[in-house]
Every structure is written in C-alpha cells, then in structure tokens.
Computed example of a mutant assay.
Amino acid sequence: MKSCLIVDDSRVVRMVAKKILQELAFETFEAEDGKKALDFCLGRMPDVILLDWNMPVMNGIDFLRALRKSPGGDAPKVVFCTTENDLQHIMEAMGSGADEYIMKPFDAEIIESKFSQVGIL
C-alpha cells in the first residue's frame, strides 16, 4: 500500500484529503505544519506528500526545500495543494522540487488526476 503524508494546518482539509486518499487505497498520515512533516519524513519517508503552502511554524516551501536536501528526500512525489495560484508561486514551487500543483478547493477527481500525472497511481 502506498503512503501519503497530508500536510495542512486546516483539520478540515486534512480530513477531506484523508477520505479521498483512503478511497484510492493510500495509507495516510497527517501533519499540521512543515516542521512536524519534516520530522515525520526523517523517520519514515512517504511515497507522496500533499502539501499546503501557508502554515505556521514552517511553511510549505521551506519544508519542501528542507525535504529535498534530506537523505531520501528526493524520493517522494510532492503535490502542492494551495490557494496560492499566481505564476510566481507555481514557478517557485516547481523550482524547489514540487512535482505537481493543485488549487484549493479540490475534489477526488482532481487528486486522482494529479496523482496519476506524477505516476503515483
């Protein structure tokens, strides 16, 4: 079973994403900020990370940069899932190692499509 770490400071977003991903047969884990997500990844690297941008403690882009520098941090597929939709944010995310980008709000069809595009489904 593939694993997905859902990183978002919104409990509701994590709950919705978890339901969708479990229906797609993913084992899911959650973190409410980038620091907790990085700590999780240093202990157990997931197959894919669904990542919010704006979070307290450590934001998504700082998490992504730290992840990609970590041992094994190049392995997970990272899909940003955020309200930041301008070209500058998208280019920064992709340049920092994101594999794909999803705009909020999202649904099961969008997640399934993006996960397929990055080869995780």
Rank of each mutant, 00 (worst) to 15 (best):
E30I: 07
C4E: 06
K19H: 11
V7G: 07
D52G: 02
L5F: 05
E23S: 00
L42P: 09
E112V: 02
V79E: 00
E32H: 07
T82D: 15
V118Y: 07
D47N: 12
V78R: 09
D74I: 06
S113I: 04
D74P: 04
G119H: 03
V7A: 12
G97D: 12
L24R: 10
F63M: 08
D39S: 14
E30W: 06
L21Y: 04
A98D: 01
M94D: 03
K36L: 15
Q88F: 09
A25M: 08
A98V: 09
S116K: 09
C41N: 13
N59R: 10
L42N: 14
L5A: 00
L64Y: 03
S96V: 03
E27T: 14
N54S: 04
A75V: 06
G119K: 01
C41Q: 12
N85S: 12
M103E: 07
A37M: 11
M45T: 08
F106E: 03
T82F: 10
A75N: 11
Q117N: 06
P71F: 14
A31E: 01
K19P: 01
S116W: 00
I90C: 01
H89G: 00
I49R: 11
H89T: 00
G72S: 09
L50R: 07
K77P: 01
M55N: 02
I90K: 14
L5I: 01
Q117L: 11
P105I: 02
S10Q: 11
R65D: 04
R11A: 15
Q88A: 08
A108T: 08
P71K: 15
L38G: 04
E92V: 13
A31F: 00
G43S: 14
I20Y: 02
N54W: 03
L67F: 14
S3R: 10
P76L: 10
G95H: 04
E84K: 05
I110A: 01
M15A: 15
D86H: 04
M91P: 00
M58Y: 12
V78P: 15
E23T: 01
R65N: 04
F106I: 09
I49P: 00
C81F: 09
V16K: 00
M58P: 15
I102A: 14
